[in-house]
């Protein structure tokens, strides 16, 4: 079971990552990124980091990719771009070098840190199974006021944004200073 989940999640991550680079249409690339981020969320669930999994889905797959899509929409990139010319000279070789360098950095740090990292006492005290429950409890007890008000805040943001984005019904008579 564990192995199957690992393989499936890893495939999601890799296919998504390749898709981000290969797809020519920016919207498709952004959607591929969602696949990658979901795969990572599955990995988190498999490692019993349930809270991180939820945050991964809500923040990355939800908020950040939606932001990407908004930007793409606002810039009006609805057709595939001409990718043959580079905006910065020697962009591609530089990108390849940076990619290899990051891979080397992450790889070395994983190899070096094996056996060094330990779970501290504070970390052990928190049972993995309870972290979602504890979080839910503190949201609905100690932080319930702030939590409820955040929902009102979203309404405020929606009302204001709609108003600022809407066209005026008729022109203002005169602009006052």
């Amino acid at each position: 079971m564990q192995l199957i989940v690992f393989i499936v999640a890893t495939l999601m991550v890799l296919v998504g990552a390749v898709g981000v680079i290969v797809r020519k249409h920016p919207v498709h690339a952004a959607l591929s990124l969602i696949l990658t981020l979901f795969g990572i969320a599955v990995h988190f669930v498999a490692l019993e980091a349930n809270f991180l999994a939820a945050v991964q889905v809500i923040v990355y797959a939800g908020a950040i990719v939606v932001l990407f899509l908004f930007v793409i929409m606002l810039l009006g990139v609805d057709a595939s771009e001409d990718l043959r010319t580079d905006p910065i000279t020697a962009q591609r070789p530089l990108g390849a070098i940076v990619a290899v360098a990051i891979l080397a950095l992450v790889g070395t740090s994983i190899i070096v840190s094996r056996g060094i990292l330990k779970v501290t006492a504070a970390g052990k005290a928190v049972k993995a199974a309870n972290n979602l429950r504890d979080l839910a409890r503190s949201i609905f007890s100690d932080y319930v006021f702030a939590f409820e008000l955040t929902s009102v805040l979203l309404v405020i943001a929606v009302v204001g944004t709609v108003l600022l984005a809407r066209k005026l019904p008729k022109p203002e008579p005169a602009v006052k200073s």
Binding site: M1, V5, V45, A46, N50, L132, R133
Partner: peptide
Amino acid sequence: MLSTLLASDVV
């Protein structure tokens, strides 16, 4: 693994 997520122990 997933069992902890779906656990229904007494709380």
